[in-house]
Write a protein that binds this DNA or RNA. Structure first.
Lengths: 225, 225
DNA sequence: ATCACATTTAACCAATCGGTACAAAGTGGT
DNA sequence: ACCACTTTGTACCGATTGGTTAAATGTGAT
């Protein structure tokens, strides 16, 4: 009834040669899973499909990640970490507050644009009410740096008189995030309805400048009606 | 082997009384489906679950909508229409450009906030690359009004000298949408990481004012460094 | 040499799920 | 009275899919 053992009990039945590389295998699975999850969502992604695109097998996914949700959870954490790591290459201390802020906005804009998988994963996580983010201890810490970077620029700007008082750094971060995030997250529906002039190279360049202007005007000390 | 016909072939086998109400049934299905799709996504939503929460049966879903994708498609269209209808109650002609713009932003902000199901559906549609929106003839028309409303305000503002020249109305719309949309779409992950001060009643009031200020500053003629 | 761990392979399973078949009958406009 | 359309009810099906079983064997550090 069960002839499985026969398969290997023949003469040669040569097992392929392989090297141990737990970290490599894990990383490979996570990379493939990120793509699949970000394209199809948690329920839409297929474990078999992920396995097929991996250099290893479905069995190993369960070996390392337990189940689908465990895999998704780890993908989420890993992706946040990776993206936040990418933000560290930013040196703004020598610039004037206005220039520093402009640099930060433009950097964030480009950064989001270059990481659509991450954006989509965040969208998906929001659809799941952030349930898997909640479970992760890891992530909260990663983001204090974002706020303190802004705080440093903002304080300096207030001192030099270029920025007005009374704005919370987190509010500035919110604004920068919103404008940079929306550009990627809603690209498909927005361009579908309003045309895609905003999304070709020229449009994106103008848009980047626009939102940098917008954020600077937002914190500027010059009063507005 | 098949005893189905027995079930009804007995003596009484009283069928319940009912009224014809095709539109009502359709509307009921669409309402339930909107909730399910917006909560679980296209692949995550379950037809059986939708059917169960309906006042009618699974059979009728297929009778009216063909298949799951057909249902999703109609939900998408219906929801866009409903939301755009809600935007018509806006009368801004008598106001000054600045006041009109502020009104428009605050209205949009509240409007999005009151329609989280719609926001989530748009997120989901973006995850599907806007494929189902593409198939819909209906939707493109609904949105020209949004642009022309802004154009009217903007033109007037330029004439009165309050607004600077050279901004595309669609760019203003983009900015308003981005800030209002992000507030709902990314609420879960943002509050998870940065706290939920921005999302209680007080925080939302301040945020609404903040983004109105931000948009007004963006179009304002007063120059900024 | 030992031993815990990593890897391979492929069949298999139970549950879920989208979608149908079938049959009967009520409704309402003409 | 007719007849197209609408509704009810339920069993059923085939495919998909997350997850498991099984056993054998390679690897590499000690």
């Amino acid at each position: 009834m069960d002839s499985r053992q026969d398969t290997d009990s023949g003469k040669g039945s040569q097992r392929t040669r392989w090297k141990q590389d737990p970290e490599g295998v894990r990383a490979n699975i996570l990379a493939v899973a990120l793509k699949e999850f970000s394209e199809h969502g948690l329920s839409g992604a297929r474990i078999d499909e992920i396995a097929a695109k991996t250099r290893t097998s479905k069995r190993m996914i369960y070996y390392y990640f337990g189940d689908k949700e465990g895999l998704y959870q780890k993908v989420l954490e890993e992706t946040y970490r990776h993206v936040r790591d990418g933000e560290k290459e930013l040196n703004l201390e020598d610039l004037s507050p206005v220039d520093a802020l402009r640099q930060l906005v433009e950097f964030t804009f480009e950064h989001h644009r270059r990481n659509p998988d991450f954006i989509r994963l965040v969208m998906i996580e929001n659809i799941h009410n952030g349930d898997y983010l909640k479970k992760s201890e890891l992530i909260r810490q990663l983001n204090q740096t974002a706020i303190s970077r802004i705080e440093a620029i903002y304080k300096k700007g207030v001192e030099t008189g270029h920025f007005r008082k009374g704005i919370a750094p987190v509010a500035i971060h919110w604004e920068i995030s919103a404008l940079s995030f929306f550009n990627v997250s809603n690209r498909m529906t927005f361009s579908q309805i309003f045309g895609d002039d905003l999304f070709d190279d020229k449009g994106q360049l103008e848009l980047r400048r626009q939102i940098a202007d917008s954020v600077i005007r937002f914190v500027s000390s010059e009063t507005v009606a």
